[in-house]
């Protein structure tokens, strides 16, 4: 058998794995809709500069609190304008960037730090494990948003600090998940085989065992992505996250809170954006979980 045939077979195998995954994922129609919507949001975030009809920070002084209009000659804003005459649609489109960055950062921080603590706790057990897990329990025992508020109060308001604060409140879930699946995998014989070959601690932890713990972590990461967007918006709304005039979704609602009755579109559209984004990601996360969970596989 020559090598080209070998690589052809290899790619065939990979394709079969992906096909199987897609088969289970696509059985869940809601998940596919969520995925498509999410891809749309990502597209908007990347190409915000081309899609958005206006600059999000330019104030059209003649068109303050303009209601949504379609095809008008003067002051034509699809989602209306806010108290300073800025185009809501453009601000929401630019806001997707911040939300995605916030969600992504939180997930990356949680995954990297959570995996590290979880694996260390699972490998060493004993007092190291107890110390790490009790700290995580302490974080869990304070309501998430309250914890984040306290942390932002200490670190100072701002989008970056909000992301750090949210990451810390999510950390325990990742640590627990990593630790529990690590402990299950640690009893398997392939780990003993590696130990007999003389594998180092680092190799056992991160190369041998960790890849087998990833499936539940990916699902948790997806679901945390959406809650992170929600919490970033909440912190923004409370004035502890992104600061005006940054077009962050939660901040947008906060800015226009006083106009809620006189110009409802200024809060409705950012609220809808948050709702739809979070819903789409959650639907997709559900689908991922079903596709990963072998117990639900009906083969």
């Amino acid at each position: 058998m020559d090598s080209s045939a070998g690589s052809a077979r290899k790619s065939g195998i990979l394709r079969r794995d992906i096909l199987e995954f897609w088969y289970y994922f696509s059985e869940n129609k809601a998940a596919v809709i969520g995925l498509v919507f999410l891809l749309g949001i990502i597209f908007m975030a990347i190409f915000a500069g081309f899609i958005a009809p206006h600059d999000p920070t330019i104030q059209y002084r003649d068109c303050l609190e303009q209601p949504p209009t379609w095809g008008a000659e003067k002051c034509n804003f699809l989602f209306g304008t806010d108290y300073a005459g800025r185009d809501m649609l453009s601000r929401i489109i630019y806001g997707t960037r911040l939300s995605l960055i916030a969600g992504g950062m939180v997930v990356i921080l949680c995954l990297s730090i959570g995996i590290m603590f979880g694996v260390i706790a699972g490998y060493y057990r004993g007092w190291v494990d107890i110390t790490i897990m009790r700290i995580m329990d302490t974080i869990l025992s304070v309501p998430g948003l309250l914890m984040a508020l306290v942390l932002v109060a200490i670190l100072g308001p701002g989008l970056l600090n909000a992301m750090i604060a949210i990451s810390i409140t999510y950390l325990p879930y990742f640590v627990r998940l990593t630790r529990s699946s690590y402990i299950i995998e640690n009893t398997k014989e392939y780990v003993i085989a590696s130990k007999i070959s003389g594998a180092s601690k680092f190799r056992i932890m991160f190369i041998t065992i960790l890849p087998n713990c990833m499936a539940p972590l990916i699902v948790q990461a997806t679901l945390s992505f959406s809650t992170a967007i929600l919490d970033t918006a909440a912190l923004g709304f409370l004035g502890m996250g992104a600061q005006p005039p940054t077009p962050e979704w939660g901040t947008l609602i906060a800015e226009n809170r006083d106009l809620m009755l006189s110009a409802p579109w200024t809060v409705t559209f950012p609220g809808l954006a948050i709702l739809l984004a979070v819903l789409a990601i959650n639907l997709m996360g559900d689908g991922l979980r079903d596709a990963f969970d072998p117990k639900l596989k009906r083969s």
């Binding site: 398997k188 014989e189 392939y190 003993i192 085989a193 590696s194 007999i196 070959s197 003389g198 041998t208 890849p211 087998n212």
Partner: peptide, 23 residues
């Protein structure tokens, strides 16, 4: 120890648990 490890190896009962499924 590390030198002697090369002299001794082991095979296991459960052929499903003894190979790393992700490798």
């Amino acid at each position: 120890i590390s030198r002697l490890r090369q002299d001794i190896q082991m095979i296991f009962q459960d052929p499903y648990g003894s190979l790393n499924p992700r490798k």
